[in-house]
Design a protein around this nucleic acid. Structure first.
Lengths: 188, 188
DNA sequence: ACTCTAATCTTAGATATCTAAGAAAGAGCG
DNA sequence: CGCTCTTTCTTAGATATCTAAGATTAGAGT
């Protein structure tokens, strides 16, 4: 028999047993994987990946944003947006244009093709959502929304407060090499 | 000023406003990113990435598993485990050994160095968890656990039932090329 | 007007993850 | 025994994501 995903049974058993506090992160992560996976499988039929979906949805709502604004809305860094847009441009879903005002900015517009995807893709997303939360009381879903939002806020606040940085590949290389000279973020 | 992550303010405002049903997936995904990010920043000081943490934690609990079993426990595919273990072996956290019985299997063991990480890393994970859920009623957290677990179960069941596959890069290339010959999973 | 700084996009290179397909070792059966 | 099927690990190649740093254009201050 073909195995489904990462052996579902083992995973579920794992989660049902002891789930100490520090495993909330993994539970959230696994849920993300399941959701993204379900969406991706459906959207692949229309040659759209999850990454594209993220940006398409923003553009359907508000066409003609700059890459910068798109990144903010999507909650990802510019290089991520940049490469996703490259792919989407290649597929003919968006076009990029510079406009008179600020020649730095690149405005992103949906093509007719990109716009047409909306009616096909949105039902798929709704289907996934319906399946995912079937049998779950809506009170619990509301609670989940609040909890997830709190987690995002709490961690963002903390990151601000403690002035941390994401370790870069360079940092990791340095640490792996064993040179333990701690470095504070050089302010500016 | 250095920007914190993907402009937190914009993101949070976004989430607080209308969050239609189909956005639960993105909310879960953002929470994952926040949690992974928070852990990663702390663990980087000890030259451990999130990927390593996943496997270390399993091994602390049960040393000497095969790569296959490790993959199942971690809920990821073998190649993921494989490359994580390569990195961890290079860093001197684990060793791989074949044993008499089945020469196919590769058993993974913690080194003293890998084992020592436990006392440093676990408190970091606990800290992240504490910060993440601070101010959140424990009832809500319990509800969240149930919801996330249901989501994982529902989607796994559905994937089984509808006999879907993850689109591979080859599938995507095919779709991009426009050849729409639908393909069912070849049973076997 | 010139220079310096800030904003924006781009490039470079890294990790984590996946599917597909190859290689090697065991297991089962005629 | 020998052939085939299965299990396990490995390799190949793709996407999504990040940090860091380069390139370009605007804007501000002197």
């Amino acid at each position: 028999m073909t195995r489904p995903a990462p052996d579902t049974e083992t995973m579920l058993r794992h989660w049902r047993e002891a789930v100490p506090d520090d495993r909330l992160a993994h539970l959230v992560k696994d849920a993300t994987r399941a959701l993204v996976r379900a969406l991706q499988m459906r959207m692949a039929e229309h040659a759209v990946s999850f990454g594209h979906w993220t940006f398409l949805r923003i553009l359907w709502d508000c066409d003609g944003l700059t890459q910068r604004k798109l990144s903010e809305q999507a909650g990802v860094m510019e290089p991520t947006t940049f490469s996703a847009l490259n792919a989407m441009e290649r597929l003919g879903y968006v076009t990029r244009r510079k406009r008179g005002g600020d020649r730095k900015k690149v405005y992103v517009f949906l093509t007719a093709k990109g716009r047409r995807l909306q009616e096909k893709l949105v039902p798929l997303a709704e289907e996934v959502n319906r399946i995912a939360v079937s049998g779950v009381p809506s009170d619990d879903i509301a609670a989940t929304r609040h909890v997830l939002l709190s987690i995002i806020e709490n961690l963002a606040r903390d990151e601000h407060a403690t002035d941390m940085r994401m370790p870069s590949t360079r940092d990791l290389a340095r640490l792996k090499a064993g040179s333990k000279n701690r470095r504070k973020r050089p302010r500016q």
